Every structure is written in C-alpha cells, then in structure tokens.
Simulated scan of single mutants.
Amino acid sequence: MESWLLEFRFEKSLLLDTRTLGTFVESLVEDVQEITCAGKVVYRGMEHCEKTGFKVLMQEAEHGNSSALIQGSSLGLLTIDLHVRDNYKEFEEKIKALRKKIFSYNRIVRRKTLEFETLPSITRGDDFSKYEKTTCNLLMEHDFDALVYDHDSPYQNIRIFHSKQYGNCLFLDNDMNLAESDLPYTVAITGNGKVDYRGKTVLILGGGDGGILNYLKDKGPKMITMIDIDEMVIEAAKIHLRGICGDSLDQYEGENYKVIVGDCIEYLKEYISKGQKFDYIINDLTAIPISTEPVGSFWDFLRSILKLSMQVMATGGKYLTQGNSVNMTGALKMYEEQLNKLDAKVSFTKQTVCVPSYHELWVFYTLWKSADSS
C-alpha cells in the first residue's frame, strides 16, 4: 500500500464562517473524488469547527482500493492523507494535479517558503520496511530493493538488504551496522591511516562482517586475532558481504590472522591470566548506548570491555573504537566520563567521519594509557 501525505495552510478565519467553510470543504471533497477516485464520504465531522477543526473520511465502496482522510485543524493546517492499495504508480501525476488545484483555492495561504510539489509516497505492507529512525529522530528511507538474508542466530536477528547505492547492508537486531560502501567506517575505526600496523599484534573485538580484518591483514601486522561470538554473522558475511570482507573469512586462519568464534570477555580474561598483550585493540562490538544515565546492561558491558582491554594492552599500545552519532552529545559525554573512571589513566582523541549508509556523521575514539598511568 502507498500513502501520500499532503499539507497546506488555510486562513483560520475560515472556521468562523460555517457557510463558507462548508463550500470550501465540499470543493475539497469533489476535487479529491474527481482526481484520485477516493470514493464516497463515509464520515463528515463539522461540529465546533472554530475549536476542533473539521474531518472528512472517504472510502472507495466497491473495491476498497483507495481512501482519503481530509483534516483541517483549528491552527489552520489542512492535511490530506491518501492511501492506495493497487495500481498506485498512476497516482503520482494525479497527486501533483490535486495539489496544484488546491493551491488555487482563495482561502489557501501561499507562503513565501519553498514548497515541495508533493511529499513522496510512503510504502507500507511490503515484506520488509525501507524506513529507519536516525539517532536524532528523523525518518530515513533506504533504497532497498531486496532482502537477501534473514535469520535469527542464538544471539540476534541478522538481516542483509541490497541497496542500489550502497550494495549489501548488514542489520543486526534492526540496527544498521555496515554496508559494502562503508570503507570510511573501517578506515576510521582503525585509526584513519595514522596507525602503523607493521610488525604489531592486533586484537579485534567483534567485527564479524570481516571488514577490519580484511583491511588490516595486508598492512603488515605480525598477527591479528579476531573474536566474534556469532558465527552466523561471519558465515553470512562471507557469502553476502564480499564487498566488505573480501576473501578474509573464507578460512578462519591465515598466515597472519586467526578468527575465533567465542565470547570476547572470556578470552580477555584468559589473556590477562596468561599475561598476553596486544599492541592494538579494536572494539567493533557496539556503539555507545543512548540513555539518560550511564546505567544498564549495555553500559556495564561497555565498562567491562574497557577495563579488561586496558589490562591486555601493551605499553605504548592503543585502543580504537566507534562512538556514536555526532548528534548524541549526551551519550558521548557520558562515555568520556567513564574513561576518566578507569583504573588506568587514559588520554584520547576523537574524530568525526561521514559513513555513507548511516546518513549521519559518526564519532570514533582512539585511547592510550597516559604517561603517568600506574
């Protein structure tokens, strides 16, 4: 089903003149019927218009293929919501014609601000949704044309969509993780080209899409160890996300890397008990939680990873991680406050990067132990 949402402004004084308002509404109904075939009026609410506005519901009686809801508020806002079930493509021109006709009404306010010809239609009822809410509560529509993978692992729902612009895109529990176009994310979380990995040991926490491993394994590291708990993500990535992982996940062990399927916290504890250290630790597990206070299981997990990672980081080493959207100033501030509470004193830098498929600027951190850290 397709929905078009149209809006206009009308003179509020119109609500005080019942006769003129009746003529205005009748013209609206006739034009909506004529242009969009929305059907007959099944409800008309015109009582106490100066306080409550008016409302008209129209429905195509025979097939129920289309409907329209016309509403005028006491604030002078006129909205027309049109819903079409079948053959909606032919409605694009009809919607434009309807909008042009209504703008010709005498009591419609013509504002100086730029007017859209019409809002694009919203698609509902398909096998999957193209819409996602950004961190700043904006509605974003992806250009997905296929759902290529959809399975539940023991840990999360894994879905991979195909985007016309960005290639295949990985979603975990309905959260956008990475697209085949998102090399800027991988470059940023590995230090934006400012880190020399030659001869170094690297620990990747998470990273099941294989992007970080694929990017680093040819940069001369001595050894890369990647730990991800969800083997289904790894197996899906090596089939459907080749633009991210290349052939790096085809084998779980190579000349200078090893992929471990397991709980990274347990492995971190094991490394601590053995005294094993890593030059660089890259946390690709999850973004900084969005909350009003730094409490709850996600914050506890974040603090545990930080605390354990500091204990396996070699002298002169660095810890690299994503943060969150640049819009999430509160969450980023709380994260930085947590850094000041670590047993080991740390310093950090941060950078802001545009990740193509995110449609948002994203913050990345680099941490290291301060010179006076015990």
Rank of each mutant, 00 (worst) to 15 (best):
D86S: 12
I189Y: 08
D173I: 05
V261Q: 10
D152S: 07
F8H: 02
F298K: 07
V363S: 07
L241D: 01
L216G: 08
E141S: 09
R44Y: 00
K200M: 12
S373Q: 11
I229G: 03
E293Q: 13
A236E: 14
L78S: 07
N177A: 08
E132C: 09
G243W: 01
K130D: 15
V355Q: 01
N327V: 04
F103G: 13
V355C: 04
D218I: 03
L302D: 10
C37A: 12
L98Y: 14
T123K: 11
Y335N: 13
A371M: 08
K100E: 12
G125V: 13
F364Q: 04
C354F: 13
R9P: 00
M176S: 12
L172R: 12
S67P: 00
Q351T: 11
I212M: 10
T23F: 10
M58K: 00
W4S: 02
K112S: 15
G254M: 01
A38K: 04
S121I: 04
E47P: 00
H63C: 09
I224S: 15
G167R: 00
F364G: 01
V295C: 13
L138R: 15
S347I: 04
G206I: 00
Y267E: 12
E117F: 07
I160P: 03
S27V: 07
T52D: 11
N65F: 05
R110A: 12
E34W: 04
S129Q: 06
I189D: 14
E253I: 03
G275H: 07
K100D: 15
D173F: 08
L77H: 07
T135W: 01
K112C: 08
Q165K: 13
L139D: 15
G210M: 10
K89E: 15
T292E: 14
G317T: 09
K238V: 05
G317Y: 09
V326N: 14
A179R: 05
R303F: 12
S104N: 08
Y335P: 02
H63A: 13
T321E: 03
E180H: 08
F128D: 14
T315C: 05
I35N: 01
T20A: 12
G243I: 00
K369W: 00
L268W: 07
L147V: 06
S181F: 02
T366W: 03
V148G: 09
C169Y: 04
L5P: 01
T321W: 03
I160W: 07
G207D: 06
G208K: 08
L342T: 07
L216E: 13
I282Y: 03
H240C: 06
G296W: 09
I272N: 08
K217Q: 09
Y252F: 15
P154W: 00
K94I: 07
K350M: 04
K112V: 04
M176L: 14
T321Y: 04
D263E: 08
G53N: 08
R124W: 06
K96V: 12
P294Q: 10
S129M: 04
K345V: 04
V233K: 01
K350P: 01
T52Q: 09
G72D: 06
D247R: 12
E231S: 05
S163L: 08
V42F: 08
K238W: 06
T186V: 15
I122F: 05
F161E: 02
L183M: 11
D279R: 05
L28Y: 14
V295E: 15
D196A: 04
D284Y: 01
E62M: 05
V363E: 11
R99V: 13
E26Q: 13
S291Y: 04
